[in-house]
Structure formats: C-alpha cells, structure tokens
Design a protein around this nucleic acid. Structure first.
Lengths: 129, 129
DNA sequence: GTATTACCTAGAGTATACTCTATGTCAAGG
DNA sequence: CCTTGACATAGAGTATACTCTAGGTAATAC
C-alpha cells in the first residue's frame, strides 16, 4: 500500500505518516525497490495503533518508547507491560477530568436553559459552580 | 487572596494565572490599591472554571470566547449556550476516543500477562489489534 | 534608609506536534 | 529525450500553551 493510500485510509496526511515514522512512533516502514514506502499489514497495524493512541491524547514520546522497547526484543517485555499500564492510568485520569468537566458543563447548560425559559437572566454568574 | 495563595490553592503557577488573565480565559482580576491582584470569590470561580476546562483538554480559545461573550452581557446568552454545548460535544467525542484506546490497551496488556505466564513470547506482535 | 520580598508588565523562550518548503530521484507517457 | 507525477529527505516554519527573563514598583524588615 502506498503512503497516499494509507493517508486516505486513516484520514491523516502523508506528512504526518512520515513524521510518525521519523520520531519512532512506528517502526521503519517496508520499502519497495525504489525506496518508496510500501506499507504491509504489520506496518498498517503499527500506524493504526499510533493513531489510536494519539487521538486519545497520549504523548508521542510514550508511544515511541514502546516501539523502541519492542524493537529491542523479548528482554523488554516487562518494561513494555509496565509502560502500557502507565498509559492506561494516564487515560483513566484524563477521562476522569473530562467527566468532571462534563458535569460542570451540564450544570451550566441547564442553568442557561432554565434562565432562557423563565426570562431570569440576571443571576447568570460566569465562573459559578 | 494574593496570586501566590491562589497559585497554591489550585496547584498552578503564578505565571499561568497571569497568562490565563492575559489571554482572556478569566476576566480582569480585582486589584488592590497598589495594583496587585487580589482575587475575590468571583475571580476564584472564574479561575476554577478555567482550570477545570483546561484540565479536560479544551482549548484556551473556546474558554476565552465564552468569557468575552459573558462580558458582552445578556445579548450573548444564546451564543454562550451554544458554545457550551459545543464544548460538551468535543469532550464527549474525546471521551469516546479514550474509551476506544483503553479497550485496545487492555487487550494488549492482557496479552502481555498471558504471554508472561505461559512463556509464550514469540507471537507478541507490536501494533496488533 | 536601604535591603529584601512580593508583586507588576512586556516580551522572549520552550516544548510538543505537526506542517510546509526546497530540492532531488525515479518510472511511465507522449 | 523530456516532462509529469508520485514519492523521497532535511530542515525550516507554525500553532498552542505555557514558562522564563529583564527591568520596575511598593511595602515591610533590619
């Protein structure tokens, strides 16, 4: 699969695909004889993983570290395991923050709706709650 | 409340507090006679709101836009209402991405645990799933 | 009365994650 | 043969969100 096709498949620019490879978020992609990238299933799995992690907001660095450990072979398995658990905890914490903010937003939104219905606008304090 | 106290209370640097004010994420803070910031309850509410939004990952720009609309008075109520709903949708989408990534991480982590238990290490493919 | 401390502003610097530019290679079409 | 189009690299540029520096004021502390 060419870089253009992969770009289209995942909805990400070719520049970003090359960037992900450059910084080690995915291992070096298979090349065709002329040096062009020719993504194989394995490569696509790595791309998919990288995009998934990034879209959840995980930093590039952690993903690249995982790939590096992976490339170092079986001796790094427990380290990789620990790294994945760390990423998981980061995401759980992040989700918690989002849930708190969603609650706060819901309260604010509801106050706006009540205020508009009743015409009671004066008490709409800004940072409140 | 001095900026130092607020900084401590919210676990955020004084620089960041001034920055939030500068970019309009919070309205101008009450000043004491000598020109120093002296945060009142209202100011603290705005600070708390800004920190909450930011920690959920919402961009500075949207928060500042809300504050600007707020300062323009009652004519902007429906716009503010809409803005809050937009932010909410952004966060719901972000939470969805996190949930997907958590699932993927869980599968990977479990495979690592099974692999370590059974000594079956060879099939631990990187980007898989 | 001067040194220290806490604050102020304006503007420069940094980290992260892309994104764009300049320049070059290579294969196929006219 | 030469142009066109798709790819390549290296390195510069951009956006976002802080973070730091330099230089100044104002109120205690000694």
């Amino acid at each position: 699969m060419t870089i253009k096709e992969v770009s289209k498949k995942f909805g990400i620019t070719m520049d970003t695909l090359r960037y992900y490879e450059r910084v080690g978020m995915i291992p070096p992609v298979t090349r065709s004889t002329n040096g062009n990238r020719d993504y194989q299933d394995d490569d696509l799995n790595w791309v998919s993983l990288a995009i998934c992690m990034r879209s959840a907001g995980l930093p590039v660095e952690g993903i690249a570290r995982y790939v590096k450990l992976y490339q170092e072979g079986n001796t790094t398995i427990s380290e990789r395991h620990q790294l994945l658990i760390n990423q998981k905890n980061i995401l759980k914490e992040q989700r918690h923050q989002i849930d708190e903010t969603l609650e706060r937003l819901d309260k604010k939104i509801e106050r706006y709706e009540v205020a508009v219905e009743t015409g009671e606008l004066t008490w709409l304090k800004g940072g409140q709650v």
